[in-house]
């Protein structure tokens, strides 16, 4: 049987779900960044598959943009995590509750 759009969508939803669970359960900031990447890539898959469905390259353009944006976000994220580590000697997210006045 041929791989149809539905299969691809299920695949991207699956990856998105995994990414979301990782995002919600992990305590370590870095692993959260990783799961974030996973979620972004799941959307990429969906985009590319839609582009294949419609035969035009709209999805691919957005895909490229998403990759660059993901890179930027990760860069800024790592910088902030580095700074957090310098200040608190650990990057556990659930301890970062300084602002809960």
């Amino acid at each position: 049987m041929t791989i149809g759009i539905a299969h691809l969508l299920f695949l991207s939803f699956g990856i998105f779900a995994i990414g979301l669970c990782g995002f919600l359960t992990r305590r370590n900031a870095l692993s959260i960044l990783l799961s974030l990447e996973l979620m972004l890539n799941s959307v990429n898959i969906a985009l590319v598959s839609f582009s294949k469905l419609h035969g035009n390259e709209g999805g691919h353009i957005i895909y490229f943009l998403v990759i660059t944006v993901a890179a930027c976000e990760t860069a800024v994220g790592l910088a902030i995590i580095l700074n957090l580590f310098r200040l608190k000697k650990n990057i556990r997210v659930d301890e970062a509750t300084e602002l809960r006045v």
């Binding site: 979301l20 995002f23 919600l24 359960t25 959260i32 997210v93 659930d94 970062a96 509750t97 300084e98 602002l99 809960r100």
Partner: peptide
């Protein structure tokens, strides 16, 4: 509700 934990906020978004 403002627990300060990051994941709680994302959960609320979801």
């Amino acid at each position: 509700l403002q627990t300060g934990v990051l994941q709680a906020y994302v959960l609320w978004v979801w």
